[in-house]
Amino acid sequence: MFDAEALIIALTVFVLAIFIGYEVITKVPPTLHTPLMSGSNAISGIVIVGALLVAGQADGLVGQILGAIAVGLAMINVVGGFMVTDRMLKMFRRSGQK
């Protein structure tokens, strides 16, 4: 049933997380904006948690297939996002640093 208390808690977490995100990310310098985007792409792969829950709790075949697709899509973001971000960040160096 409609659970007002759980919804309020979820909203609280949501609002606070947005504020933390805002504070932390405004400090990222423009030089790193592309890695920030690909890195946050990887973090949006957190939906893999949701995909696991749906796939793991599915009773029928339809649910399992949907779960597997979601896991696959999320994994592209997670693996691809972190790897490509690392590939970029590896290239950043200071003057005189080899």
């Binding site: 759980a6 997380a17 995100g21 920030l36 985007m37 946050s40 973090i43 939906v47 949701g50």
Partner: peptide, 30 residues
């Protein structure tokens, strides 16, 4: 990111809400 956070609301999962919000904030700032 916001889609991820919305999924967190669907499943009642704070992890999704937090990480999704961070990405949502990042995209909005950029």
């Amino acid at each position: 990111g916001i889609a991820g956070a919305a999924t967190g609301f669907v499943l009642g999962n704070n992890m999704l809400i937090i990480a999704g919000s961070l990405v949502g904030a990042s995209g909005l700032i950029l």
